Amino acid sequence: MDPRVAARLINAPLRERLRTIADVQPAHVVSDFTGVELAHTEVLFTSWGCPPVTAEVLARAPRLRAIVHAAGTVKELVTDACWRRGIAVSSAAAANAEPVAEYTLAAILFSGKRVMDIARAYRHFPAADDWAARFPGLGNYRRTVGVVGASRIGRRVIELLRPFTLDVLVSDPYLDEELPGARRVDLDELLASSDIVTLHAPALPETHHMIDAARLASMPDGATLINTARAALVDQEALIAELASGRLYAVLDLTQPEVLPASSPLHDLPNVLVTPHIAGSLGGELARMADLALDELARHAHGLPFIHPVDPTTLARSA
């Protein structure tokens, strides 16, 4: 992993726990396998910044049996050679899903309460006593929320929404079951019916710009689009056009490019909240991923299967 990631991910208590589980040198962190001695390595403990584990790397690691990834997706590091070798792979994606779902829940509730509008208007109308009259439709009671993608995060968002009196829709072409708290519909019905739409689909060729100009136009006036998934899911230029008209709102944690230039109109539009990819694990939340990864490492050390294994047969259509 990137040494800077290691410094934030593995704090002193976690470092001591790691030493009790495995024969490891926590201070020895590599971000490049070139020249690294791997002959006795049985497990790779990885995170963001890990280079691909290629056939050449595996040839130098004859005892390697598992990769424990203390982060989300493993697509960038686990190669086909790992699956052919039968390497067991675990991911902390479930832990990383939690803060994304929490961010999404907050965005949904703030959107329904028209927080962005009222916060701006308050400066100009400090004595206003009827915000609901100024912003018709304000409130979360019986609002319709559409969840696009029954991914790990999408499902967690649906769970977090259960205590609230909301009508929740879900759309996913791979979903073949009913999810408690949500009604399954196709994507076009979801977009046309939802006050708030939140995206949790992976970036795949078939999902590229799935939210295009026509689908944005089908959303009700005043609807909010939340994207904590991948920027490529949305035709950003078409979204900017809708936002500039004032018809829609957006909460965007991902943009194209990811580091949004200061000249982007998204910074200045009053109906947009843009954040710099902060929904995932940051700060103290990193420890949740490390704890899960160490739990998995301990299970492997005792000959037990992973609780959070990566399934190579579904990896292609996951985030």
Rank of each mutant, 00 (worst) to 15 (best):
R288V: 03
D32H: 09
T41L: 03
V30R: 12
R65C: 01
R19H: 07
I153A: 11
L105R: 07
T73Y: 00
N11H: 10
W48T: 03
R317M: 08
H277L: 08
M210T: 06
P13E: 11
S91H: 05
T165A: 12
G181E: 06
P270G: 09
P205T: 05
T313K: 13
M1S: 14
A128T: 12
L18I: 00
L282M: 04
D253P: 03
L160Y: 09
L175I: 06
A182R: 05
Y122V: 14
D253M: 09
V170P: 00
E206Y: 03
G86A: 01
L297T: 01
P270E: 10
R143L: 11
V147P: 00
E242R: 14
V274M: 09
P276I: 08
A262K: 08
R123Q: 15
S90P: 04
T314Q: 10
V30D: 08
S193A: 07
I211P: 01
S47E: 03
V74R: 00
Y122N: 12
A133Y: 01
G86M: 07
I307R: 15
A244T: 12
D268R: 15
L239Q: 05
A70R: 02
E56R: 13
R17Y: 04
L169A: 01
P126R: 15
I158E: 00
L109D: 07
S263Y: 03
